[in-house]
Simulated assay, not measured.
Amino acid sequence: MLNHPTLDLLTDLGLHGMAKGFRDMADNPEAAALNQAEWLAILLEREVTLRQQKRFESRAKNAKLRHQAAIEDVDYRTPRGLDRTMFLALAGCDWIRQRRHCLLTGPAGIGKSWLACALGQKACRENLSVLYQRVPRLFAALALARNDGRYAKLLHQLARVDLLILDDWGPEPLTPEQQRDLLEILEDRYDAGSVIITSQVPIDRWYEIVGNPTLADAILDRIVHNAHRIELKGESMRKKRATA
Rank of each mutant, 00 (worst) to 15 (best):
Gln36Arg: 13
Gly234Ala: 07
Thr6Gly: 10
Met237Thr: 07
Lys20Trp: 02
Asn147Trp: 09
Asn226Thr: 10
Asp94Leu: 14
Trp169Gln: 03
Gly120Ile: 04
Glu30Arg: 08
Glu172Lys: 12
Pro176Ser: 00
Ala37Glu: 14
Pro107Thr: 09
Asp73Cys: 14
Leu103Pro: 03
Trp169Met: 13
Ala218Gly: 00
Asp217Ile: 05
Trp169Ala: 08
Ala145Pro: 03
Gly81Met: 04
Leu220Cys: 00
Gly92Tyr: 07
Tyr151Cys: 01
Glu231Ile: 13
Leu9Pro: 02
Arg189Asn: 04
Leu144Thr: 13
Leu154Ile: 03
Ala60Leu: 11
Gly106Tyr: 09
Leu7Met: 00
Ala89Lys: 15
Ile185Val: 11
His156Asp: 10
Gln53Ala: 13
Arg80Asp: 06
Tyr76Thr: 06
Arg59Cys: 03
Glu208Leu: 07
Lys233Leu: 01
Gln200Lys: 10
Ala108Phe: 12
Arg55Ser: 12
Trp206Thr: 11
Leu34Lys: 12
Ala33Lys: 15
Ala159Thr: 07
Arg137Val: 12
Leu103Ile: 14
Leu154His: 01
Gly109Leu: 12
Met1Gly: 14
Arg229Ala: 11
Arg59Lys: 06
Leu9Ala: 15
Arg229Lys: 15
Leu144Gly: 03
Ala159Met: 05
Met25Ser: 11
Leu43Asp: 02
Lys153Ala: 12
Glu184Trp: 08
Ala60Phe: 11
Asp188Ser: 12
Gln53His: 07
Lys112Ile: 08
Lys122Glu: 15
Gln178Val: 05
Val201Gln: 04
Asp83Lys: 08
His67Lys: 09
Phe22Lys: 05
Leu103Asn: 03
Asp12Cys: 08
Asn147Gln: 15
Val201Ile: 14
Gly193His: 09
Arg134Tyr: 04
Gly81Glu: 08
Gln68Leu: 10
Arg59Ser: 06
Thr243Val: 13
Leu115His: 10
Cys93His: 03
Leu90Met: 07
Gly149Leu: 01
Pro202Met: 05
Asn212Ser: 02
Asp27Ser: 14
Ile185Ala: 02
Leu138Phe: 00
Ile197Asn: 03
Ser236Ile: 00
Val130Leu: 03
Asp8Phe: 10
Val161Gln: 02
Pro202His: 01
Leu7Pro: 04
Ala26Glu: 10
Gln200Ala: 11
Leu232Tyr: 14
Met237Arg: 14
Phe22Tyr: 14
Arg77Phe: 11
Leu155Cys: 06
Glu184Asn: 12
Arg180Cys: 04
Leu215Ala: 04
Asp167Leu: 08
Glu57Asn: 13
Arg99His: 09
Gln53Tyr: 02
Glu38Met: 02
Ala143Cys: 01
Ile197Gly: 02
Met1Ile: 11
Thr243Met: 13
Met1Glu: 09
Leu50Ile: 00
Phe56Asn: 06
Phe56Val: 07
Pro5Ile: 04
His225Arg: 12
Ala118Arg: 04
Arg180Tyr: 04
Asp75Pro: 10
Leu65Trp: 14
Asn62Ser: 15
Glu177Leu: 14
Ile203Tyr: 00
Asp94Lys: 15
Cys93Gly: 02
Arg189Ile: 05
Arg51Thr: 07
Cys124Trp: 08
Leu186Thr: 02
Ser194Cys: 03
Ile203Phe: 00
Asn3Gly: 03
Glu184Pro: 01
Arg46Asn: 10
Val195Met: 11
Trp169Cys: 04
Leu144Phe: 09
His4Ser: 12
Ala152Gly: 02
